[in-house]
Design a protein around this nucleic acid. Structure first.
Length: 554
RNA sequence: UGGCCUAUAGUAUAAUGGUAGUACGACAGAUUUUGGUUCUGUUUGUCUUGGUUCGAAUCCAGGUAGGCCAACCA
């Protein structure tokens, strides 16, 4: 009955493997390096890896690829664990490549004994010089033919700290003329007298990515090791090492990383934005880090839905950030509580409503909620704040909000008619005078009047105040990384607009962290993590679709 | 002047030799006490040239375009 959704190419491989009974269960891993915060691109990988084992059975390990102590920190480990959990996934085991340093060291010795690895005294410049280029073969290192005994002795002394950083490396002995540059005697171990976030000062030699990743997969009996396209050339080395080491044959599969319009997902560039204070930390709501999206008010559901919709493939891509926003709106529409907030206030006086009188009107919390969100009371009086942009002295074509002589409904309250307005010496509207129609009260309207426009409002006497932060995309161009100039020159100067004083309806005073709101007609908002009851701060997660904005531009 | 990967509407992704579909977007309309939501309709696509085949987006060959590879990063 339901239309079957096509499988992505990795699911096809998994189904085929399962059909052939190649594996009893599948095991995947999500392998971040703890040197930065996770971003939306990682979310794709997380959803893919964890999604596969949820769908087909098995489990996914969270494994930190912590083989480079100089860039890695515990702070990042904690943020990564937090983000994966928040996205809604549970890992089978929490593991670290550094857990395997002893095993990896034994593997290296095994390779040396097989005559497949050697200690090289060349400097990195010398190694580079002998490496050749993609079109020219490399040349053998003068140290390539050391005896097994000498290599064993030298490698042990490397481990014991007898040599300075950079003075020696352990290299695989493969083929300096190989068409794959990675097979030209790749470096396996390097000397770094550096403190490691987990192993402390136990080691002064550390394995390279290629000598750690595949072996870690193998140790964990990972069946499908999924990574991004730039690792395609590494697969040959990955397989070579597994074969020569005679260990469990994990298989690597590569998919194209997801790019998003108006964003960057390079860890280096994200770090630069943070360090140089272009943004307020890794979790700045304009950042497409997981923590930034969370602070902005994105939900795990919406991010998972997004990852699901963009799919998995091998071709270069740049996904429209509008789709991410669509996924958020779709989810929030179902769960966000509707509230009235005036961001850019202008005073409206109802001249035929008794001054000093207050009555309560009732408004639905969410007309789209699955179990009907109920209603709340809102105080109404003769003096209201309304949105400045909801009044036009000279109405435009197709305008059906407030204008001289025009009628609109005040949401959940009465229909009013604009009788007059006042301006200051600069021509700014200072006050709008209206009369209301007593029989038009929402819920028992006997007036028989139908108006096309409905606007939101807050009673001046009852309004509370809050700071509201309006976010826009961080970059002005679709693909900042592909532009000529440095990506920093494409930062959108208007990516954050702060409204120090917005007027909020009284029920919002007790807003709780994490609650999602729709400020009616304005967008979806959530409390900022640094908001306090005394100084409320709301972040705009995303605007509502605005057909009028489009129409008025025509 | 090498090797590897990729090419389907504006974007992303299906179709696994048999009717080129879906989502987002765009456009038009209906509904609406949010110019929101919802609903309906329209629009736009197989990089190119050959070949195999009754039949090709799919298989093969050549071309073109884009990406990746020369860190003691991952």
């Amino acid at each position: 009955m339901t239309e079957e959704k096509g499988l992505n190419f990795i699911e096809e491989i998994v189904e085929e493997d399962l059909k052939e009974k190649k594996y009893l269960q599948i095991i995947t891993r999500f392998p971040p390096e703890p040197n930065g915060y996770l971003h939306i691109g990682h979310a794709s990988s997380i959803c893919l890896n964890f999604g596969l084992t949820q769908k087909y059975g098995g489990y996914t390990n969270l494994r930190f690829d912590d083989t480079n102590p100089v860039t890695e920190e515990t702070e990042y480990v904690e943020s990564i664990k937090n983000d994966v959990k928040w996205l809604g996934f549970e890992w089978g085991n929490e593991l670290y490549a550094s857990d395997y340093f002893d095993t990896l060291y034994e593997y290296a010795i095994k390779l040396i004994k097989k005559g497949l690895a050697y200690v090289d005294d060349s400097t990195s410049e010398e190694i580079a010089a002998l490496k050749g280029t993609p079109t020219e073969p490399g040349k053998n290192s003068p140290y390539r033919n050391r005896s097994v005994e000498e290599n064993l002795d030298l490698f042990e002394r490397m481990k014991n700290g007898e040599f300075a950083d950079g003075s020696k490396t352990l290299r695989a002995k493969i083929d300096m003329a190989h068409t794959n540059m990675l097979m030209r005697d790749p470096v396996l171990y390097r000397i770094k007298h550096a403190h490691h976030h987990r192993t402390g000062d136990k080691w002064c030699i550390y394995p390279m990515y290629d000598f750690a990743h595949g072996q870690s997969d193998s140790i964990e009996t990972v069946t499908h090791s999924i990574c991004t396209l730039e690792f395609v050339p590494h697969r040959e080395l990955y397989d070579w090492l597994i074969e020569k080491l005679e260990i469990y044959p994990s298989k690597q599969y590569e998919f194209a990383r997801r790019n998003l319009t108006y964003t960057i997902t390079s860890k280096r560039k994200l770090l630069q934005l943070v360090n140089d204070k272009y943004v307020d930390g890794w979790d700045d709501p304009r950042m497409t880090t997981i923590s930034g999206l969370r602070r902005r008010g994105f939900t795990p559901e919406s991010i998972r839905d997004f990852c699901d919709r963009i799919g998995v493939a091998k071709r270069e891509n740049i996904v429209d950030i509008g789709l991410l926003e669509h996924c958020l709106r779709e989810h929030l529409n179902k769960v966000a509580l509707r509230r009235m907030v005036v961001l850019d206030p202008v005073k409206l006086v109802i001249t035929n409503y008794p001054a000093g009188q207050t009555e309560e009107v009732y408004s639905e919390n969410n007309p789209e909620a699955e179990n009907n969100g109920g209603t709340r009371a809102i105080p109404f009086s003769n003096e209201l704040w309304i949105e400045r942009e909801d009044f036009m002295e000279v109405p435009a074509k197709k305008w059906f909000r407030l204008a001289p002589g025009a009628m609109v409904r005040l949401k959940s309250a009465y229909i009013i008619k604009c009788e007059d307005f006042a301006k200051d010496e600069n021509g700014n509207i200072t006050e709008i005078m209206c009369t209301y129609i007593p029989e038009s009260k929402s819920g028992n309207d006997t007036s028989g009047i139908h108006v096309k426009g409905t606007i939101h409002w807050v009673s001046i006497r009852h309004a509370a105040k809050a700071e509201v932060r309006l976010y826009d995309r961080l970059f002005k161009v679709e693909n900042p990384a592909a532009e000529e100039d440095d990506f920093l020159s494409y930062i959108n100067p208007n990516s954050l607009k702060v409204i120090k004083t917005a007027y909020i309806e009284p029920s919002l005073k007790t807003a709780q962290p994490g609650a999602q709101f729709q400020f009616i007609r304005k967008g979806y908002f959530t409390l900022d993590k640094y908001s306090t009851p005394e100084n409320l701060v709301f972040n705009r997660s995303v605007t509502l679709k605005d057909t009028w904005a489009k129409e008025s531009k025509k």
